[in-house]
């Protein structure tokens, strides 16, 4: 079966990103296809490469990057939500005249149309948030 995942909450807030991660892992383990993981609202913070959690804690964005790499997942950050929150890739940083970028490997910035498409392509869209 095809799944799309929507995450509306940042890391280390409540539990949404963790629940979504474990769900995605379990779905892949069961042989399902993940069409796309879409990060919206504060969920875009999951895509920072500058997070430095304590060593004995999980690293949420690195964990997503690694899972993405292993299974060639599409990890999409909503562009409007990302720009507002200072989440910029190289292109967006250049366009906005900023001196740096902060997107973790494997994440991409794209539009809300990707969420609509994720809902259409998948058999199930599951939402994790606050």
């Amino acid at each position: 079966m095809k799944f799309s995942i929507l995450i509306n909450e940042g890391p280390y807030t409540h539990q949404a990103s963790d629940s979504a991660y474990h769900f995605t892992e379990a779905a892949l383990r069961a042989g399902h296809e993940i069409v796309r993981v879409f990060f919206y609202h504060d969920g875009v913070y999951n895509g920072t490469r500058l997070s430095v959690p304590p060593q004995d804690d999980r690293n949420v964005s690195e964990r997503w990057s690694a899972l993405g790499q292993e299974h060639s997942l599409e990890l999409i950050l909503c562009v409007a939500a990302a720009q507002r929150r200072g989440m910029l890739d190289e292109d967006e940083a250049r366009r906005a005249g900023k001196d740096s970028n902060n997107i973790a490997p494997g994440f991409e910035i794209s539009g809300l149309g990707q969420l609509v498409d994720a809902g259409i392509q998948a058999d199930r869209l599951i939402v994790f948030g606050d």
Binding site: F23, E25, L125
Partner: peptide, 16 residues
């Protein structure tokens, strides 16, 4: 979590 995934396949729609 495996059971969670299985449940989501058994119902047509998921409402969070």
């Amino acid at each position: 979590y495996d059971g969670f995934v299985k449940l989501t396949t058994e119902y047509d729609k998921l409402q969070s």
